[in-house]
Design a protein around this nucleic acid. Structure first.
Length: 412
RNA sequence: GUGCCCUUAGCUCAGUCGGUUAGAGCGCCUGGUUGUGGUCCAGGAGGUCGCCGGUUCGAACCCGGUAGGGCACCCCA
């Protein structure tokens, strides 16, 4: 019988890795709660239209990376490639626009049919937050601050740089886009094929091309700052001032762009050089046009998402797993007695490790592997006197205690 | 989707002018301790050398294909 491997680009989360994932999620959820972000869980798949409408028909994600299929009813559905569109859809479907502002935290698997690499799987997991209904730059600052503190708490902040940019408002962006197209059309012959392709689809994207030839042309390209309206400049200034107030350092990256139309004003990424070519750790921005574009009421939004796998690879410090108490019965009568006691203690949330077979030596080995803090040994000797031998696994010291008092000795 | 590299025991890896029974460390099992782990000592199990095919008297080693992994591009968390 042939073995059945996991699908390419997917991985099993074994207990140790799952614990790390859970810690990342719990950290983000906890900080999110401190900021008033409530957890939302949307379906793992949506009607394909949800992502087509938000990501645009021409983006790479939609054209070649989505897991799209027809269900048995003939509807086209898609495994979600990202979280924002789904949360926005839930917001619209739930008619929550009279409860603004709304703050959501989410986490879960996302799916993209990409070529797997380090820090990039076909099923990967994200944490993310969305803030709906706040058009003021204080919203941008809050969202970034929350992201920074999540990274801080996970102990990865030191490896990350906050890159910040503005995409301005619609007026600024239209003006800039026109200026860019005009400029690049004057250098068409020297542009890479990829960038020529981007020229009419996403001229802003040319700015972050890694192509050497493009780079030199980009050097002299018009600057976004020259096309920002006063209002857009004020907005960006307020975001920067807010970050300064909180002592959150950033570097301006004028090439940090978003291709999609609904993005505006703030774009930011916490990046690292420790994950190879996958530099983005936590990325987000403002998307005031998104909800309207999806058919909902015009509602401003700002948020971010971060890859749990990437965070897990970056983090070096993890919480110590709790140490159990190992129960070691010798003989059937003792096994029966200890199982009953374990039943009660486990019900109180005390971690009891108890094997299913083996002599004392084997069971001590087991206790050691479980990193037990205590071993409770009960054999015929102890049982006859209703006592237990308590062994401190660190010091090796042993004492005899009445079975009735066991619970007291096992607390903490 | 494009290019380059890699794939030997559960894990991390040695092993080429192609030549008898393919090695190490860690892990695992047994014993030294008939009721005591983590250290130490002794012994042991475990590999169709990713898979398929080819060249050859003979292939872990050479060639082709394929799958998986890695890196860069693309894109993105």
């Amino acid at each position: 019988m042939a073995t059945l491997p996991a699908v390419r680009g997917t991985h099993d989360l074994l207990p140790e890795a799952a614990a790390k994932h859970n810690h990342v999620v719990a950290t983000a959820r906890g900080l999110g709660q401190a900021y008033g972000y409530g957890e939302i869980a949307t379906p793992i798949f949506e009607q394909t239209e949800v992502f087509k409408r938000t990501l645009g028909d021409t983006s790479d994600v939609v054209t070649k990376e989505m897991y799209t299929f027809e269900d048995k009813g003939g509807d086209s559905v898609t495994l979600r490639p990202e979280g924002t569109a789904a949360v926005a859809r839930a917001f619209i479907a739930g008619k929550m626009n009279d409860q603004l502002p709304l703050k959501f935290f989410y986490h879960g698997p996302m799916f993209r049919y990409e070529r797997p690499q380090k820090g990039r799987q076909r099923q990967f997991h994200q944490i993310g937050i969305e803030l709906f209904g706040v058009s003021d730059p204080v919203g941008d600052v809050e969202v970034i601050a929350l992201g920074a503190q999540v990274l801080e708490k996970l102990g990865v902040r030191d490896w990350c740089t906050l890159e910040l940019n503005t995409l301005g408002d619609t007026e600024s962006r239209d003006a800039y886009r026109a200026a860019l197209v005009a400029y690049f059309e004057g250098h068409l012959d020297k542009l890479s094929a990829d960038s020529k392709e981007r020229l009419h689809r996403n001229p802003l994207r040319i700015l972050d091309s890694k192509n050497e030839g493009d780079r030199s042309i980009i050097e002299d390209a018009p600057r976004f700052d020259e096309h920002l309206t006063p209002a857009a400049q004020d907005f960006f200034g307020a975001v920067k001032a807010g970050l300064d107030d909180l002592g959150i350092a950033y570097t301006r990256n004028e090439r940090l762009v978003r291709g999609l139309d609904y993005y505006c004003h703030t774009a930011f990424e916490f990046t690292t050089d420790r994950l190879g070519s996958q530099s983005a750790v936590l990325a987000g921005g403002r998307y005031d046009g998104l909800i309207g574009q999806m058919g909902g009421p015009e509602t401003p939004g700002v948020g971010w998402a971060a890859g749990i796998e990437r965070l897990t690879m970056l983090a070096e410090q993890w919480p110590e797993p709790p140490r159990p108490v190992t129960f070691i019965p010798l003989g059937e009568a003792a096994d029966k007695a200890l199982r009953k006691i374990a039943f009660g203690l486990r019900g109180q949330g005390i971690a009891i490790d108890m094997g299913y077979s083996g002599n004392l030596k084997r069971r001590m080995v087991r206790a050691n592997k479980a990193n037990a803090r205590l071993a409770v040994i009960v054999g015929d000797n102890e049982l006859a006197e209703n006592q237990a031998t308590l062994r401190d696994m660190d010091s090796g010291e042993q004492q005899t205690v009445p079975l009735a008092d066991l619970a007291l000795h096992l607390k903490d």
